[in-house]
Nucleic acid binder design. Structure first.
Lengths: 128, 128
DNA sequence: ATAGCTGCAAAATGTTTGCGCGAAA
DNA sequence: TTTCGCGCAAACATTTTGCAGCTAT
C-alpha cells in the first residue's frame, strides 16, 4: 500500500470523531480540508483501511442487506466462521454482565445486540 | 391492521427458515407459493412485522449506512437510548461468557460484535 | 518507469414510495 | 362501501467500479 494524502486525511479525520460516522459524514468533514476529494475515494479508502485492520466497521453481521428473524424475543447469535452456521443463544448468559455494568457505571441495559463469531464444535474437530 | 394473505405467507415462510434471510431471499422463497407477489410487498410487510414486534431485524446499530470506528482493537459499545451517547466498552467483561460457551458448547469465540443499549447514568438521573 | 491512487460519472445494489386497482372489513 | 394492502415501476440511498490522468516510489 502506497502513501496517499487522501487516505491519511481520512484516517486522521475518523480518529478525531467522537461518534462513529458514516462514509458520507466523513466525506463532508474531509471535504473541508480537501475540497476536491470525491466520495468514491472515501469509500475506497475506508475499505482499504478496514482490510488492513487500521479501522473497523461498526455492525454485527457483515451483510450488505438487513436480515430478519422470526424469533421476536431478544436473543443473540453464535456464528461459525468456518461452516457459517448461525445458532441462537439465550440472553441469560449476559445477565451477569448487565449487572456488572449497573454496579460499575450505573448503566441500565435494556437491549442487547450481540453476535459472537468463532469455531463451532463440529468445525473444531475437523480443524486439525 | 387488516389481514393479508401476503403478510401471513411472509411471516410463515420466515418462521420456517433456519437461517436469517434477507428480504430478497425471502422474496424468492415466497414467490414459489405466490408467483405474483412483488418485492415491494415483502419489504413493506417486513417493516410492518418489525413495527408490530412479530419479527426482528438482525443487526446492531439501526442505521442504513455502515459506520466506522478508528479504534482498530476489538471492543464493544454502550449506547444510551435517551441521549444517544456511544461509549466504548472493554471486551474483558465478556470473557467469562466466552469461557462458558467453550465449556458448554465447545464453541471457541474469536470475534465479538456487541452493542448494548440502555440508559446511561446521567439520563437515569433526569428520568424521574 | 510503473504500479497504485485519484476524481468523475455511471452502474450496481438495497430499500422505499406514489399510484391506481382489488380485496378485507 | 370504505379503507387498507397490493403489484408495478419509478425514485431514492448507499456503495462499487471503469476509466483516463496523476503521483509516490
Amino acid at each position: 500500500m502506497r502513501y496517499s494524502r487522501q487516505r491519511e486525511l481520512i484516517f486522521e479525520t475518523l480518529k478525531n470523531f467522537e461518534t462513529h460516522p458514516t462514509a458520507e459524514q466523513l466525506y463532508i468533514q474531509v471535504k473541508q480540508e480537501m475540497p476536491q476529494i470525491s466520495l468514491g475515494t472515501v469509500y475506497r479508502n475506508l475499505n482499504i483501511l478496514v482490510e488492513k485492520g487500521k479501522i473497523r466497521k461498526v455492525d454485527s453481521l457483515e451483510s450488505s442487506s438487513v436480515r430478519y428473524d422470526a424469533r421476536s424475543d431478544e436473543h443473540s447469535h453464535l456464528v461459525c466462521t468456518k461452516c457459517g452456521t448461525v445458532k441462537d443463544l439465550d440472553l441469560s448468559y449476559f445477565y451477569s454482565v448487565d449487572k456488572l455494568l449497573k454496579e460499575k457505571f450505573d448503566f441500565t441495559v435494556t437491549e442487547h445486540n450481540i453476535v459472537l463469531k468463532g469455531l463451532c464444535s463440529d468445525c473444531s474437530l475437523t480443524e486439525k
